[in-house]
Amino acid sequence: MTEVTSDVRVIIAVAGKDWRGELRSRQLPIGAAFFGAVTLFVFGFALGPDRAALAQAAPGLLWLALILAGMLVVSRLQQLETDDGAGEQLALYPASRGAIYLGKVTAALPFLLLLGAVLLPATAVLYSVVIGPALPALVATIVLGSFGFAAVGTFYAGLTARMRAREILLPLLLLPVIAPLLLAAVRATVAALAGDPFSEVASWLGLLAAFDLVMVAVGAATYGTVLEE
C-alpha cells in the first residue's frame, strides 16, 4: 500500500470514528448548536431592542457565536481522545501525524458547518437581517471560515489537552491566532449582506482561503509536537 492511500485511510478512520460516535450520542451537534443559538439570543439582550443597531451588528455577532460554539466542538472532539487515554494510544499507532491531524480537522468540519446552518437563519430571524441574494457568498464565507477555525482549533485543543488550566489556555491561545479569520469573515459577511457594492467579498474570501491553507499546512507539519509526550 502506498503512503498516500494509507494516509487517506487514516484520515477517514479518524474522522469516521468521531462522526459515528457523536452522531450516535448526539451530544455535540445538539449541544453546540443550542449554545450558539442561546449566545445569539443573549447578544440581543446585551445590545437592546433597537432593530437597526442589531441588524448592523449582526455579522459580528454571528461570527462571535460561531467561534464560541466552535470552541465547544473542537474541545469536545479532543475530549474523546483524553477521556480514556485514547490519545496516548493514538500516538502509538504507526500512522503519520499529519494524517491524524487532518482526520481530526475533517471530523470537526461538518459540526462547524452545521453550526453555520443553524446560526445563519437564527441571525436572520433574531436581528432582522435579509439574506436573499447574499446566500451563496455567505455559504462560501462559512465554509472557508469553518475550515480555518477547524485547522487552528483542532491544533490548539490538542496542544492544551494535557496541560494545566487548559480551559483558560485554549481560548487565550486560539482567539489571537484566528483574529484575521474573524476580521475577514465578518467583513465578507457585511459586504455580502450589503450586496457587495465595492466588490470586496472575493478579496476577503481569498484572504480566508490563504489563512486556511497556511494554517492547515503548519498544523499538519507540527502536529507531532501535540502527540509527543
Binding site: 500500500m1 494509507s6 485511510r9 487514516v10 478512520a13 479518524v14 470514528k17 459515528r20 460516535g21 457523536e22 450516535r24 450520542s25 474523546l80 477521556d83 480514556d84 487515554g85 485514547a86 496516548e88 494510544q89 493514538l90 502509538l92 499507532y93 504507526p94 500512522a95
Partner: peptide, 28 residues
C-alpha cells in the same frame, strides 16, 4: 509493540468491533 495500558483507550460511543476496526486501520 503491543501495549495494554492502565487506561483501556476505548471510545465510549463506539461498539467493541468499531473500536477494534479503528485500531486495525490505524495499525495499517
Amino acid at each position: 509493540i503491543g501495549l495494554l495500558g492502565h487506561a483501556t483507550a476505548l471510545y465510549d460511543d463506539l461498539t467493541a468491533s468499531e473500536n477494534l476496526r479503528f485500531a486495525a486501520t490505524m495499525s495499517g
